[in-house]
Deep mutational scan, measured.
Amino acid sequence: CHSECLGNCSQPDDPTKCVACRNFYLDGRCVETCPPPYYHFQDWRCVNFSFCQDLHHKCKNSRRQGCHQYVIHNNKCIPECPSGYTMNSSNLLCTPCLGPCPKVCHLLEGEKTIDSVTSAQELRGCTVINGSLIINIRGGNNLAAELEANLGLIEEISGYLKIRRSYALVSLSFFRKLRLIRGETLEIGNYSFYALDNQNLRQLWDWSKHNLTITQGKLFFHYNPKLCLSEIHKMEEVSGTKGRQERNDIALKTNGDQASCENELLKFSYIRTSFDKILLRWEPYWPPDFRDLLGFMLFYKEAPYQNVTEFDGQDACGSNSWTVVDIDPPLRSNDPKSQNHPGWLMRGLKPWTQYAIFVKTLVTFSDERRTYGAKSDIIYVQTDATNPSVPLDPISVSNSSSQIILKWKPPSDPNGNITHYLVFWERQAEDSELFELDYCLKGLKLPSRTWSPPFESEDSQKHNQSEYEDSAGECCSCPKTDSQILKELEESSFRKTFEDYLHNVVFVPRKT
């Protein structure tokens, strides 16, 4: 048989008469490798580009789960590009990614509803959504962080984005990388972005840091009482949809009607710091009717980097990364020049730590249904340095008659930039024990000054392991946590139920 035959053949030295091919099969003959313009397919066939392209389009058009959109890589027609490569849609070739590779997620039936953290986790790592997304989240724990972890990498949506009755959302900033909504599939009414009845939605994105392009379709905003109209108009300008909307697409009466839409800028007039305090004062603000001013709200939190936005980490279910302080308005003076500047002394802060701070007014709604208010920009203030805590785990070892090696770990709280350490030492008198000992005694162990690591005695271990207080009263049991108490109650309830079950099964009433 021919060298490319495997198993047997019907005619000697003829690659077209093989029972099976050793390498690849091409047009009725066995070959060692697939010549151009053919590609290896499933490690035994040679196919042309049209064959591989037909497989790709067949799966793409069917949208069946589990099928493969075949691509070409290293002269092979394979189910998908290997790690580190992405497909070129024009020629199906796998090309190296520039940075992290995109991950295209194809949605069944063309859309997916995100109504819980669990459903959001199914899209973790996706960068391109081939379909439409509907966000409908009523509640949950730590929602802002969970949504950002699972949806934060999405850069492109081919269909539309719909935010509907998501009472738990305060902001859409968890879509931190969303840059493009194509609108290839539109919501009824030709809408590519749809926001309806979101009672706590206050911000779409921080438009000073976020760009969003909507290729096709219109915007729809109705019944978002805490979303200011200025935020919607800003989205029109940034996304390129200005002029597409009709009169009733953006409701003037049901958007922002319960919001404090600040239209003035508060400026800080005085800032002073110490290692654990920050004193702030800002310019006074009074609405047209000074009785509408209820006070100020001061927001602050630790910020290692200057990239904080107002609604980071917030949701309507209680999660809030900001510390909020309510401040009463100052006494009002008739003389504008003698107006008191409101302020606040922030206490209990960490030394040498940068804080993000902003302040906003708290006002009631005027009778004319106009909203007044003022808010400052987010500023960054760093507390002063102070003395560091003591170095940890000092170790001293003498390696000769004239040297001592000293080692330690950095302090747990540096409280500033540590530039150097101060080492103090003092000579001590020799131990009298060394002169009084009889060095001729056998088995004498000389006193040693070398360091030995501390260890816990058996008594201390027994005390720590004991669940009861000892007789001397030195140790006591740790208080039980809520989960331990709940577990004990469940076990007790189970024992009672099981005992009742045994009584009912074992003891049967005697027939009379």
Rank of each mutant, 00 (worst) to 15 (best):
K103A: 05
K103V: 02
K103I: 07
V104H: 05
V104K: 03
V104L: 05
E111R: 15
E111G: 15
E111V: 08
T113G: 05
I114A: 00
I114W: 04
D115C: 08
D115I: 08
D115P: 02
S116H: 06
S116P: 02
A120H: 04
Q121H: 02
Q121S: 03
G125P: 02
C126W: 00
I134D: 04
I135E: 01
G139P: 00
G139R: 05
G140F: 15
E148W: 13
N150I: 02
L151K: 01
L151G: 05
I154H: 03
S158N: 10
G159M: 00
Y160P: 01
L161A: 05
K162C: 09
K162L: 13
I163T: 04
R164P: 07
R164H: 15
R164M: 12
R165E: 06
R165A: 04
Y167K: 03
A168Y: 10
A168V: 05
L169R: 01
L169G: 08
V170R: 08
S171W: 09
L172S: 05
S173I: 08
S173G: 08
F174H: 06
F174L: 06
R176L: 06
K177V: 10
L178Q: 02
L178S: 01
L178R: 02
R179Y: 14
R179M: 13
R179E: 11
L180R: 09
I181M: 04
I181Y: 01
E187S: 08
I188C: 03
N190K: 15
N190V: 14
Y194V: 12
A195L: 11
D197W: 11
D197R: 06
N198E: 02
Q199E: 03
N200S: 13
L201P: 03
L201H: 01
Q203R: 12
Q203D: 14
Q203G: 00
L204D: 03
W205P: 04
W205K: 10
W207C: 07
W207E: 06
W207A: 11
H210R: 09
H210A: 09
H210K: 14
N211C: 08
N211K: 08
L212P: 04
I214F: 12
G217M: 03
F220Q: 10
F221S: 08
P225R: 03
K226E: 02
L229Q: 08
S230W: 04
S230P: 14
E231D: 15
I232S: 03
K234T: 14
K234W: 06
V238Y: 13
V238L: 15
S239V: 11
K242Y: 06
K242V: 13
K242M: 10
G243P: 00
R244L: 13
R244T: 10
Q245I: 09
E246K: 06
E246R: 15
E246Q: 14
E246P: 11
D249H: 14
A251G: 14
K253L: 14
T254C: 09
T254M: 12
N255Q: 02
N255A: 02
G256V: 03
D257H: 11
Q258G: 02
Q258C: 04
S260P: 04
S260D: 04
S260Q: 05
N263S: 11
N263L: 05
L265G: 07
L266G: 02
K267A: 10
F268D: 01
F268Y: 10
F268K: 01
I271L: 08
T273K: 14
S274I: 02
S274C: 12
S274G: 10
S274P: 01
I278R: 00
L280S: 06
W282T: 04
E283Y: 12
E283K: 11
P284I: 01
Y285W: 12
Y285N: 01
Y285F: 05
W286G: 05
P287A: 01
P287I: 02
P287T: 06
P288Y: 14
P288F: 11
F290R: 01
R291H: 01
D292P: 03
D292N: 03
D292T: 03
D292E: 01
L293S: 02
L294M: 03
F296S: 00
M297D: 03
M297P: 01
L298I: 06
L298Y: 02
Y300V: 09
Y300R: 14
K301N: 15
K301M: 14
K301C: 04
A303Q: 13
P304R: 10
P304K: 14
P304A: 14
Y305P: 11
V308G: 03
E310F: 13
F311E: 04
F311G: 09
D312C: 14
G313F: 07
G313R: 11
D315P: 14
D315V: 13
A316F: 14
A316R: 15
C317P: 08
G318A: 03
N320K: 09
W322A: 10
W322H: 12
V324H: 01
V324K: 02
I327F: 03
I327R: 06
I327Y: 06
D328F: 08
P329L: 08
S333K: 13
N334H: 11
N334S: 13
D335R: 12
P336R: 09
K337L: 12
K337N: 15
Q339K: 13
N340F: 10
N340V: 15
P342T: 09
P342H: 06
P342Q: 07
G343A: 09
G343K: 14
W344S: 11
R347P: 09
K350G: 03
K350L: 07
P351W: 06
W352K: 09
W352P: 00
W352F: 08
T353A: 08
Q354Y: 15
Y355A: 03
A356L: 02
I357S: 03
F358M: 07
V359R: 00
K360T: 02
K360A: 02
K360W: 15
L362T: 06
V363L: 11
V363I: 09
V363F: 09
V363R: 06
T364I: 01
F365Q: 12
S366R: 01
D367N: 05
E368F: 09
R369A: 04
R370N: 03
G373I: 00
A374H: 04
A374D: 02
D377T: 08
A385W: 04
N387G: 13
P388W: 01
S389Y: 02
V390N: 13
P391R: 03
L392R: 13
I395Q: 07
S396P: 09
S398L: 03
S401A: 15
S402C: 10
S402A: 15
Q403H: 14
I404N: 01
I405R: 10
I405L: 14
K407R: 14
P410R: 14
